[in-house]
């Protein structure tokens, strides 16, 4: 096929959490620029499988940028070079023939590598379990129109709620801080009347769990915002700090 890209991939291979890991090189030949990045990896893996070698393990599922399952650090950038784009939505037209592409897992102490490019992000689930919800039982809700919410707040809450929980913010941060992730949930619920009763408790409990999981602190360089595929604003961090401060003062 004409116009296909020939690429050299430098891929992190690691057999398991205890393995030291190493970079290995693979050639990706004649890649259609309209392929997605993961489709390019599929081709490499098909080749590995048919030649009896272990394919490169990576997480993925929806392949339309919303489930948050895909990850990868591509040439040093979580989810690759394009802004506001998950790895699964990154297309090979963003690369040029002859490029050398380095592919590594999301790295953070709280995200241990499981195998190759797959990491364990269950810490995010545990942070959510610590308070990322409104405590309401099924069936206990009043009519949806009983509580109006101004459009501005509703829209801002939505913007924070678009977080897909991928962990790029953590991978981008030199301190492996999860504050963009936690701030997004705290902000989403703080902006809505439904989130008010548990507002302070939520910030306190989520931050506590975040610390216990081993995520680092924020030193205000906002690599997280730059890496976020949903372009969540750094402002969610100050919102979270505000709620946390209030909670601490009152305790």
């Amino acid at each position: 096929m004409s116009g296909g890209l020939n690429l050299t991939l430098r891929v992190w291979r690691q057999n398991g959490p205890g393995d030291k890991g190493r970079i290995e090189e693979y050639q990706a030949k004649d890649i259609n620029p309209n392929k997605s990045f993961l489709e390019m990896l599929d081709v490499v893996n098909e080749g590995l499988i048919t030649s009896g070698q272990d394919p490169i393990e990576f997480d993925h599922d929806c392949r339309e940028g919303i489930c948050g399952m895909c990850s990868l650090v591509i040439n040093g950038n979580p989810h690759g070079p394009e802004r506001g784009t998950t790895t699964c939505q990154l297309h090979m037209r963003s690369f040029s023939d002859g490029d050398v592409i380095t592919i590594e897992p999301f790295r953070a102490g709280a995200f241990p590598v499981l195998k190759d490019l797959m990491v364990d992000r269950s810490a995010f689930d545990r942070v959510t379990q610590a308070g990322g919800y409104v405590s309401i039982r099924t069936g206990a809700a009043p009519d949806a129109h009983a509580t109006p919410v101004g459009k501005e707040n509703a829209d801002a809450a939505f913007d924070a709620a678009t977080c897909i929980g991928c962990g790029a913010c953590v991978a981008a941060c030199k301190n492996a801080s999860a504050m963009l992730f936690v701030g997004a949930k705290v902000t989403h619920l703080s902006l809505l009347p439904q989130g008010q009763p548990e507002r302070e408790e939520r910030a306190r409990n989520m931050v506590k769990q975040m610390d216990e999981e081993g995520f680092g602190n924020c030193t205000n360089q906002y690599e997280c915002e730059a890496a976020c595929p949903k372009e969540i604003s750094r402002n969610v961090i100050s919102n979270m700090n505000g709620d946390f401060l209030l909670a601490s003062l009152r305790k």
Binding site: A144, T147, G150, K151, D155, L192
Partner: peptide, 14 residues
């Protein structure tokens, strides 16, 4: 009703 009570940010009018 249930989803709004959970904090699902549905689109709203002014």
């Amino acid at each position: 009703d249930q989803c709004v009570a959970q904090g699902v940010p549905f689109a709203r009018e002014y």
